[in-house]
Structures are given as C-alpha cells and as structure tokens.
Simulated scan of single mutants.
Amino acid sequence: MSDTSLTIDNILAPELTLCKVPASSKKRVLEFIAEQIRQHNDSLGEGQIFNNLIARERLGSTGIGQGIAIPHCRLEGLEHVIGVLITLEEAVEFDAIDNQPVDLVFALVVPKEATSEHLELLSQLAEKFNERTFCDRLRQCEDAGTLYQRMTAASG
C-alpha cells in the first residue's frame, strides 16, 4: 500500500457507484452496500462487512445531516480502501443527527490498520458533502456514469 494520500477518485470504482437504488430501510441500505462490495471483491464476506457497518452505526448514526450518510467500518483482511457511492430512489430513515431521512450515501470500508487514512477520507467526504450545490448535482444524476463523474471530478 503506497503512502500517497488517498483521494475519493482512487477509492471509488465506477461499478461501486449506483444511482437510484431502491431501499426500504437503513438496514437494507447497509445490506446492499455489503452485497456490492462482496461482488466486487469476493475475498470478503458479505456478512462480515454488513456486521461491521451495523456495529459502527450502533456507536452513533453515520447520517451527518441534510440527507447524507457516510457509513464506514474497518475490515480485517482488507488490503485497500473501498468506497461505495449510492443515491437512493427514496430517502430512508437513518437516525441522522438532524432527523432527516437519507438519500445520498457514501460508504467507506478501510483496512483494519488504516486509521489515519480513514479519518482523512472521512473529513474529505464530509467537506464535499457540506456543499449543498454539490449534493444537489449528485442527487440530480439519472445514471451511475454521471454520478461517478460528478463525484470524482470534484476530488482533486
């Protein structure tokens, strides 16, 4: 693992960027994320990813307000950071700090030992998602390709 600082565009793959995902609950959103990551990286167990995401949510919701959530966890046996970006077809209840339902989700799964990168990425994401116009542009995407482009064009 190189020690160049991680940016959103080198942890997010186009195939892990999904638009208008149907999900009925926070739990379904996290299950969906775990399924996507496992499909992309079959050395990882879906159950393990899901359980780690849920365990992190129990410490406090990762819903950061204004319809945005950044679920994240560390994972044993992972070699590089994985990002998943999804917009939801309909907003779901996420126990967010402002009690608003969430429709924009960026999940971050990091190697067990990658603490500083983890925090760095979370702050990059939080900063981006703080810009309302940026979030609106992501929400307006009709397809995954556009969503991926808009997310990664902004990083750099």
Rank of each mutant, 00 (worst) to 15 (best):
5 S>M: 09
8 I>F: 04
11 I>Q: 03
14 P>D: 05
21 V>E: 11
25 S>A: 04
25 S>P: 08
25 S>Y: 06
29 V>K: 04
31 E>A: 03
33 I>L: 08
35 E>M: 09
36 Q>K: 15
39 Q>G: 11
41 N>D: 15
41 N>C: 13
45 G>N: 11
47 G>S: 12
48 Q>A: 10
49 I>Q: 03
56 R>P: 05
57 E>S: 14
57 E>W: 09
58 R>L: 13
62 T>N: 07
66 Q>R: 14
67 G>H: 09
68 I>A: 10
70 I>M: 10
71 P>F: 02
72 H>D: 10
76 E>Y: 04
78 L>N: 08
82 I>Y: 01
83 G>P: 03
84 V>N: 03
85 L>A: 13
87 T>Y: 04
87 T>S: 15
89 E>I: 00
91 A>K: 14
92 V>T: 12
93 E>Y: 04
93 E>K: 13
96 A>H: 12
97 I>E: 06
98 D>M: 09
99 N>P: 01
99 N>F: 11
99 N>M: 10
100 Q>S: 15
100 Q>E: 15
102 V>T: 15
104 L>R: 08
108 L>Q: 06
110 V>W: 00
112 K>L: 06
117 E>H: 08
119 L>P: 00
127 E>L: 09
128 K>W: 13
130 N>T: 13
133 T>S: 15
134 F>S: 09
138 L>M: 12
140 Q>D: 06
140 Q>K: 12
141 C>V: 02
142 E>G: 11
143 D>P: 00
147 L>T: 04
147 L>I: 11
148 Y>E: 06
149 Q>P: 00
154 A>K: 10
154 A>D: 07
156 G>D: 12
